[in-house]
Design a protein around this nucleic acid. Structure first.
Length: 474
DNA sequence: ATGTCC
């Protein structure tokens, strides 16, 4: 174990060890800035483990693609590592349709229009869920929703929703909510059920199962050629509010305790301090918000499919998980605080952390591709314990939004979406200019990232999901 | 990623 090879290395930085799970080519392409950033993060006291996945790239304070671990008793919590899109993650639903059902581009267009009618994607969008109490969502996650928004049964035998979610409810100290100003409360309320922009998306995909994973795919309910829906979104402005108001408490504690690194943007406090506990509690409210936000969008997409494809169309939940969060977990009998900034948990078969329906198989790890490229369903492997069962979260940006706009013309972008051809990946907007900075050229090659994760023995591929249509925020 | 302010 722990043997360095061309897919895994340990870097000895001045402040400590950084584990990098990436092929040599991807590692050398990362540049020095990501190592500087790691060195700052490693200066946070008591850190037990820090690693990069192959999609690592520079973020604010901490690289996207970071897994960082402390003990819960003597450890630290960092709002900078979690970031501001708290609870951002993936949700996947399976339909009873086949790829051939959507061969006609006009049907894909009608579906996209029907989704857009139900899910606001524009800037300053307002959601349609005024009959839901924000307090209930923050306090109880999916359990805070009125019954009509939870179409699947709550009972484990029939459930396809609540039991197929990594965490349907986080409990927390509700008095901490008083720290958030009332106007931000109202903003978060009207944003429920909205997509957001940037790399967030709703995609209609066709599933292709890996030859050697047919048994597992069958146990998950996957079929070759099946149509699925993938949703990538987070906690909208509520996460930002938590980051700001929870983070400012943390900053005060840092100066009181004389803590800091070379990067003034890197905030952290002892988990057991007042500020640490306050932030952790607020963060849990954002995780509740994020899972509900994705759930409500899935509810709307289900309605859209029924309208266009017929009332017999099903959209059962496969799974929902996050890639920006931290949580207390038991690993090797120890209580640890695991931070994920753009990294996905992928537990193997038999691991006790799997939700009940996936205890024996391992849960699906949902990995988004860039727009126009495939997404992946993966499963953890036992060797992944070396990285606390944390894997990549996608392709990873390779150039900035501005640099992408300089490099890629609208025509080039249109042709990578095969616009105007029979196999066009239908987008929700004809204003392609607004989406150029999300073009595939802005991202690393997701296939390479996935290969790197597999070769490093963190996870295996179960299925590849090819995009047929995408709804993006504009 | 997001909202705000220039």
């Amino acid at each position: 174990m722990n043997k360095q090879n061309s897919y895994y290395r340990v870097i000895d930085l001045p402040a400590g060890e950084l584990h990098v799970y990436a092929h040599d080519d991807l590692f050398y392409a990362m540049g020095n800035k990501v190592l500087e950033m790691a060195n700052n993060n490693l200066q946070i006291p008591g850190i037990r483990h820090m690693s990069y996945t192959p999609d690592a790239h520079v973020g604010v304070g901490t690289c996207i693609g970071t897994t960082a671990v402390w003990g819960t008793e003597d450890g630290y919590i960092s709002p900078s590592i979690v970031g501001s899109d708290i609870g951002c993650g993936m949700r996947m639903h399976l339909t009873n349709l086949q790829g051939s059902d959507l061969k006609d581009v006009r049907l894909r267009r009608r579906l996209v229009k029907a989704i857009e009618k139900r899910i606001p994607v524009e800037n300053h969008a307002r959601g349609y869920f005024s009959d839901i109490w924000l307090e209930d969502v923050l306090r109880k996650g999916l359990h805070g929703l009125p019954g009509k928004y939870v179409p699947d049964s709550y009972t484990p035998r029939k459930a396809t929703s609540l039991t197929h979610v990594e965490n349907s409810r986080f409990s927390f100290r509700e008095t901490e909510l008083d720290r958030i100003p009332e106007n931000l409360y109202h903003r978060a309320h009207r944003q429920l059920g909205t997509l957001g922009n940037g790399n967030h998306f709703i995609e209609i995909q066709e599933i292709a199962i890996e030859e050697n994973k047919r048994d597992l795919a069958g146990q998950w309910g996957l079929k070759d050629g099946q149509i699925a829906v993938m949703i990538h979104s987070g906690s909208r402005s509520w996460g930002g509010a938590v980051n700001q108001y929870g983070g400012s408490q943390v900053a005060k504690t840092m100066s009181k305790l004389g803590l800091g690194t070379a990067d003034p943007k890197l905030a952290f406090a002892p988990l057991q301090s007042d500020a640490g506990q306050s932030y952790a509690n607020l963060m849990y409210s954002a995780l509740n918000y994020a899972v509900v936000n994705r759930h409500l969008m899935a509810y709307a997409v289900r309605d859209a499919f029924k309208e266009v494809m017929g009332s017999k169309t099903e959209l059962t939940t496969l799974y929902d998980l996050m890639h920006n969060y931290c949580s207390e977990e038991t690993h090797g009998g120890e209580e640890l605080l695991i931070h994920h900034k753009g990294t996905t948990r992928a537990l193997p078969a038999g691991h006790s952390g799997n939700p009940a329906p996936y205890r024996e198989t391992g849960h699906p790890a949902l990995i988004p591709g860039s727009m126009g490229t495939a997404s992946y369903l993966m499963v953890g492997v036992p060797e992944g314990a070396a990285n606390y069962h944390s894997i990549c979260h996608g392709a990873g940006r390779v150039r900035s939004r501005n640099a992408t706009k300089q490099l890629v013309t609208v025509d080039e972008f249109a042709s990578s979406m095969r616009i105007g051809q029979e196999d066009e990946i239908v987008l929700n907007t004809r204003a392609l200019e607004a989406l150029v900075d999300e073009s595939p050229q802005a991202y690393k090659d997701v296939d390479q990232i996935i290969d790197s994760v597999v070769q490093a023995r963190l996870a295996d591929v179960v299925a590849k999901c090819r995009p047929l249509a995408a709804v993006k925020g504009v």
